[in-house]
């Protein structure tokens, strides 16, 4: 029986060598093995030799172990970490341009304020706002903006780091290790 999409979604962060074509290698692997991606974010790390990819993987047709083990075969992939959304600090950025003329501009700004979003650009009859938050906060915000008329919307896909271990907290999901 098919699982709901939220259960199929797993975050994998992949540390890769900063070499030409490395994104194509990862993307090509997902494509040729028939693995599905919900979102992908990539940027250099603090060490210029490496970049980190954060991929939200759809596990509808394949196990997480298989995805990780296939990724590990790529020579430019240095480390792979599985992040259980429950044990990760996960954030995503949303930019949205929304219709907002004099009649409803106040409502839009108020909504943005409720989510602690920011107005980053203002036009005569539209606004561009920014919100950083968890993917589900962004989902909510997007749904509430929709009635005003979304002109353009862009989300970054989530990035994530493992939640820190504290003595009083439960230990986070262990690193995905290869057998």
């Amino acid at each position: 029986m098919a699982q709901p999409a939220s259960h199929r979604r797993h975050l994998v962060t992949i540390l890769v060598e900063n070499k030409a074509g490395v994104l194509a290698r990862v993307a090509g692997l997902f494509s040729r093995r028939g693995f599905n991606i919900f979102s992908l974010a990539v940027a250099p790390t603090d060490d210029e030799r490496f970049s980190r990819l954060t991929i939200a993987v759809d596990l509808e047709s394949v196990s997480l172990e298989q995805v990780i083990r296939q990724l590990d075969k790529l020579v430019n992939v240095v480390a792979i970490e599985e992040l259980d959304p429950a044990d990760a600090t996960e954030r995503e950025l949303l930019l949205a341009t929304v219709s907002a003329d004099a009649s409803n501009r106040g409502q839009v700004i108020e909504l943005s304020g409720c989510f602690e979003g920011r107005i980053v650009d203002v036009g005569h009859d539209s606004l561009t706002m920014m919100l950083a938050g968890t993917p589900s906060q962004l989902d909510d915000f997007e749904a509430l903006l929709r009635p005003f008329g979304i002109i353009a919307l862009q989300r970054s896909g989530p990035v994530a780091l493992k939640r820190l271990v504290r003595a009083d907290a439960q230990s986070p999901a262990s690193l995905a290790r290869l057998a």
Partner: peptide, 8 residues
């Protein structure tokens, strides 16, 4: 030798 074969 290839861990990805195990359980594939």
């Amino acid at each position: 030798i290839d861990p990805a074969e195990i359980g594939k």
